[in-house]
């Protein structure tokens, strides 16, 4: 066992939960996002599923960075959040424009480029 003064500083979750469980948790979250993208036709819900996948990756990066005491992983998460915010603003503008032109956001209707 570690001396008490060291163990006090380590968060309880890190002491008790193996890093593998965070891998399993993030994989499950990521797969839920993938299933959402594949099953839904509403463009906004597809977008939200992409956000879920981004958050699964964020969780895993933060878990690894906390367990290894390396702040670089958390800086990466910060940049992922910045890019996600920019992506959402442009993406929702595109969806609004699609709705204005064809009065629906069902991605099944957008088949003009189909061969």
């Amino acid at each position: 066992m570690q001396p008490n003064d060291v163990a006090v500083n380590i968060p309880e979750v890190i002491q008790q939960i193996p890093l593998n469980y965070y891998l399993i948790f993030s994989t499950a979250l990521f797969v839920i996002g993938i299933i959402g993208v594949l099953t839904r036709r509403n463009a906004i819900i597809i977008f939200m599923s992409i956000e879920l996948m981004l958050n699964a990756v964020n969780t895993l990066l933060i878990a690894f960075s906390s367990y290894r005491s390396d702040p670089t992983g958390q800086v990466f998460v910060f940049f992922i959040m910045a890019v996600a915010a920019a992506e959402v603003s442009v993406g929702l503008a595109i969806i609004v424009m699609i709705y204005r032109n064809i009065r629906t956001i069902d991605v099944g209707v957008l088949n003009k480029l189909k061969w």
């Binding site: 500083n9 933060i62 005491s69 958390q74």
Partner: peptide
């Protein structure tokens, strides 16, 4: 985690 070099102030 490595108890010897763990840094609780990372985040």
């Amino acid at each position: 985690y490595n108890p010897a070099s763990f840094d609780a102030k990372t985040g």
